[in-house]
Nucleic acid binder design. Structure first.
Lengths: 203, 203
DNA sequence: CGCTAATCTAGAACAAGTTACAGACTTGGT
DNA sequence: ACCAAGTCTGTAACTTGTTCTAGATTAGCG
C-alpha cells in the first residue's frame, strides 16, 4: 500500500537537487553537534545558504527534515552493510550482528542519532509516509541481514518486534536510561524470536 | 540505582497537593481532546486555576507534565488491573492479555494516549528520573501479569523487549502506521519470548 | 529574445514553550 | 499577633518553529 514516496512529484532540476543536498548536509552537520535541539531551522537555512521559506518548501517541518536526514543516513548504512554481510551461523545471529554494527555507527555520532531517532518517534500522522519509508528501509536491512529468502509470517512478525525493540532501545540509550551493553542484550533477546518462531533455518 | 523519585524533596501542603492534582487533571483533560498539541501550558495553567509560573514550578516542562500525567494514569491502571488478574494458561498469555487490556483502555482515549506516549519517547535526559519511574511501573504491571514470583534473567530480558515493543507499537498505532490488529500481533509475538526464553513455566 | 509561471530571497509576523520579575499571599516560628 | 522566607499571581519578554508577503530570480517556451 502506497508503494512510492515523495520523488513522484516533480523531477527536481539540478540546482534544486543541489539545494536539497545542501540542506540535508547542513541538517546532519548541525545534528552532529548538539542533537535535536541544535538543528534550528534558521541555522539550517543559513548553513545551507537557502532562505527560510525555501527550506520549508523542501521540508515542511523540522521533523520532516530530520526524518529525511535519517532516511539519507540509512541508505548510506544499507549500502555499507551490503558490502560486508554478517557472518553469524543462524538468521538471528546475523540480524543481531548487523544491528550491533549499526548501533556502533550511531555511537560514533550520538548527537546525530539523538536528532534522528527523536524526530522519528515524535513524528505525527503528517509525517507517516516518510516515517514509513524509513521503516521499510530498516526492515529491508534486517531482512537482508538474516539472509532469509522467503521469511515466514512468523519471521516477519519477529522482524517487526526486533524493529520495535531497536527503536525503543535506542531511545532508552539516548536518554541515558540504558547502557550500551543493555541495548546489546535487548537486541539479542529480540533477535532470538527469528529462530524461535519458526523451525530450524540454517544458512 | 537512583531508587526513589521526586517526592523526597518537600512534603507538599494540602493546598499544594490540591494544586498538583488540578494541574494533572487539567493536563489529562486537555490531552483527552486534541492530544499532545492541545496541551498548551497557558491553557493548562488557566484550566487548573494556577499561574503559569506556578505550573512551571510544579512541572519544569511540558514533557515533565505529560510524563507525570502518564505516571498518574498508569497507577490507576495498575490498581484496576490488580482487581481482575489475567486468566491465561501461561505467563506469556497473561502478559499479552494484560497489555491488550491496557491497549483497549488507551483506545478509548486515543488523544490522551497520543500526548502521553509522544511525551514519553520524546523526553530527553532531563526527564530521565520521571521516565524511569514510568518504566518501572510498566515493568511491574507486566511482571504482575505474568504471575512469576522469581523471574529468571532471561525472563527479565524478555520483559524488557516486551516493553520496548509495547511503546514502539503504540507509536506506530498513534501515527496511523499500524492497525489495532497489528499492534495486537506485535504484542503477542513479543510476549512469546517469556516462555521461550526459559523452561516450561505453568501457572 | 521576451513572456509567464514557478521558485527563491529577505525579512516581518505569529504561536507556543519557557523565563523573568514585581508585588500579593501563605506559612511556620516566635 | 508579627516577621522572615518561601510561594503564588499576573504579565511581559524571549526563543524557536512556522507562516506570510513583496519583490528578485530562474526555468521553460514561443
Amino acid at each position: 500500500m502506497t508503494a512510492d514516496a515523495r520523488p513522484a512529484a516533480t523531477p527536481l532540476t539540478e540546482r534544486q537537487e543541489a539545494r536539497r543536498r545542501r540542506i540535508l548536509h547542513a541538517s546532519a552537520l548541525l545534528a552532529g553537534r548538539g542533537g535535536f535541539e541544535a538543528v534550528q531551522m534558521r541555522e539550517v537555512a543559513e548553513a545551507a545558504e537557502v532562505a527560510l521559506g525555501t527550506l520549508y518548501r523542501y521540508f515542511p517541518s523540522k521533523i520532516h527534515l530530520l526524518v529525511a536526514t535519517m532516511q539519507d543516513q540509512l541508505q548510506h548504512l544499507h549500502a555499507t552493510l551490503r558490502k560486508r554481510p554478517p557472518a553469524g551461523d543462524d538468521a538471528s545471529q546475523r540480524a543481531a550482528e548487523t544491528l550491533m554494527r549499526a548501533f556502533r555507527a550511531l555511537q560514533r555520532r550520538p548527537h546525530l542519532a539523538d536528532a534522528m531517532v527523536r524526530a522519528l518517534t515524535f513524528a505525527d500522522r503528517s509525517v507517516s509516509p516518510e516515517v514509513d519509508a524509513v521503516s521499510r528501509l530498516t526492515t529491508a536491512i534486517i531482512l537482508d541481514a538474516t539472509g532469509l529468502e522467503h521469511p515466514t509470517p512468523e519471521q516477519l512478525s519477529a522482524v517487526r518486534v526486533i524493529e520495535h525493540t531497536w527503536h525503543s532501545a535506542l531511545i532508552s540509550w539516548l536518554s541515558g536510561r540504558a547502557s550500551i551493553a543493555q541495548v546489546g542484550i535487548d537486541i539479542e533477546t529480540a533477535c532470538r524470536l527469528i529462530d524461535l518462531t519458526a523451525g530450524p533455518e540454517r544458512a
